[in-house]
Design a binder for these strands. Structure first.
Lengths: 347, 347
DNA sequence: TGAATCACTCAAAGCGCTTTGAACGCGCAA
DNA sequence: TTGCGCGTTCAAAGCGCTTTGAGTGATTCA
């Protein structure tokens, strides 16, 4: 069922039918009703491609998800982020087109999406320090919103980010307040901007108390369970190992917990752990009394908001750029406690 | 840069340029070179919508991901599945359009994608028993491939599935061989077809040894960490609790592990656990000597394959339907051992 | 009464591409 | 010389929609 058929059915011109359906004022109310009714009855939906061709808009938003080809790794937060964003798109009649591509191929993909006219705007995921994609998107003239930020980018751009530095500083402060001094820091990959900021937060808090950093207790890797496990195991075995861990994701924290328990230690008593918690649906950390003490920020909400910001920007391209900084509250759970008076037995 | 501009640049007609770029034979080799070169220089990409309108194909594939609105839950395997599928699409010039919608809205979304002509085919995720979406898609006339199967669907359709029944029967057999008799079964939601099949495998293996099923030790829930934790905790506290767990996903198994350890028991000694392992990138279960004994099947590979099956079907709609059953080998890890002679202390 | 206004409707152009059917120029056989 | 076939190129139609600019008939005003 297309416009032509529908309008000949109704004995009206395509113009009138199109206008009736798109809410233009120069159509009598009676006709509009008649048209709407017929459209419903025949389950008529304007063809997206034709509509797009005529209007010059695609009613679609692109998400280019970076994947590490080396590890075949895709960050588990994307599912939830996209699910949140998808809600917003669905509510506004937008489609979401997804490309999952290796870091190296990203610029090419952006160029292509633009040249092919597949999308009206983009969400940029996983920004690194001085991310080259930001100037690229600006040059391409596609509206975009960055999930995260990119230090080193001079010009303004739209972004939505968690206040990672503040959150990790606060978390560090709590550990310090509890008497911990040897704090291991298991960060994400530090070419990622968010990881850099978390590190800054951690270092700032440590230095504020006059503590010096121990590079041997700071790591930076892709955030997997086994990264947490291996690191914790190694660090805890070493003499003068950490009494607390500051960790970048619940998945990594689960690995840390495994190591801790395997060594016969007790979480929250012998070893404290604070993690960032993206509030993933399948990995809920508990509500009132969470398992892990954590800085929490729902990545699904972030998806919803980022999508809305992008749609606003598409609707009003000349409106000023928007930015949004979300605070991540620190929720105390069962994984933190005062620093034990005696050093735990190494090994 | 569009066709018209490009061809006037070259002093050729749009016809010739279009044909040169699409590999038609009636273009001289010299012209083809010249055109290709110019296209490259100007970074020309045919506009997707225009091309789609002219050809009647959209060069896009739809994935409709079911989300449980109630739990804001999206199955964590989708990220990896889609990442695998995305590889295949990218290699073949297809886009992927994603809708994340509540179960209840699914039929409407399929109808709409068809009516709007947004996609040339679909992957159907998370089939339930007698899933109504299968007849719907058939009726709509869209090529589709099901990830999983749907018992109760009479007519043929394309699918790609793991042999869940066999895998879970094999896993159960191993536990029984190790002397376990009280085996708790933490299944996924049993309205899901895969969960039903896993249950069948489990029950078949139990009955084959003349064991009767204990409904009190069989559960069925959305596969979260806390589901595993809560269930294990409750079951292990009860008198005559299980000595082994058969579990539907690594996430759930992690919850079980937490409960086991919290109760002072040792995994692989006091309590055995076998789980299904989708080989998620951020939750690798270890290669040679895995942490969990598991039936393993890479959901990323499944994505790759399902996507290829769909593209084949789009290319040759009249070819016979394809189906593919993947076996999931049982890899022995550290979470299984002989049933302990004495019952472990309850609580 | 005629002109101007208004509310509504329409035919046709155009979005950027593919594809049909026609045309063109050339060499070769008759 | 004509005629044919071949290799190559082209003009134009059409995909399904929006939107411009032009009616049309009824109503109002002078």
């Amino acid at each position: 069922m297309n416009l032509k058929e529908l309008s000949s059915h109704l004995g009206l011109s395509q113009t009138t039918v199109s206008r009736a359906l798109n809410g233009y004022p120069e159509v009598s109310e009676a006709t509009r009703q008649r048209v709407a009714e017929a459209a419903r009855r025949h389950n008529y939906r304007p063809n997206t491609r034709a509509k797009g061709l005529a209007t010059g808009r695609s009613m679609a938003v692109g998400h280019v998800i970076p994947t590490s080809a080396r590890h075949e790794m895709v960050n588990p937060i994307f599912g939830d982020f996209i699910s949140g964003a998808g809600e917003t798109y669905a509510a506004n009649g937008y489609d979401m087109v997804l490309s999952m591509v290796d870091d190296a191929d990203q610029p090419q993909v952006y160029r292509e999406l633009k040249a092919k006219g597949s999308v009206d705007g983009m969400i940029l995921h996983g920004p690194s320090i001085a991310d080259a994609r930001i100037p690229l998107l600006r040059e391409l003239g596609l509206p975009f919103v960055v999930h995260g930020r990119s230090s080193g980018e001079a010009q303004a751009y739209s972004w939505l980010d968690v206040n990672n530095a503040a959150a990790f500083a606060r978390a560090t402060d709590l550990l310090l307040d509890l008497g911990h001094a040897r704090i291991a820091f298991l960060n994400g990959l530090e070419k990622m901007d968010f990881a850099q900021r978390r590190r800054n937060g951690f270092e700032r808090a440590m230095k504020a108390r006059g503590l010096k950093l121990d590079p041997g207790q700071m790591r930076s890797e892709e955030m997997t369970e086994s990264y947490g496990y291996q690191s914790a195991k190694e660090l805890l075995r070493a003499p003068a190992g950490p009494t607390a861990f500051l960790v970048s994701s619940v998945i990594v924290a689960i690995g840390v917990r495994r190591a801790v328990q395997e060594m016969g230690l007790v979480l929250g008593r012998d070893i404290s752990v604070i993690t960032h918690d993206d509030d993933l649906s399948y990995l809920r950390n508990g509500g009132e009394h969470p398992l892990f003490t954590a800085t929490r920020s729902s990545v699904r909400d972030a998806g919803r908001m980022a999508a809305q910001m992008l749609l606003d920007q598409i609707a009003a391209p000349d409106a000023p750029l928007m930015t949004r900084l979300l605070e991540a509250p620190l929720l105390v759970g069962q994984s933190t406690g005062p620093c034990p008076p005696l050093q735990h037995a190494a090994q």
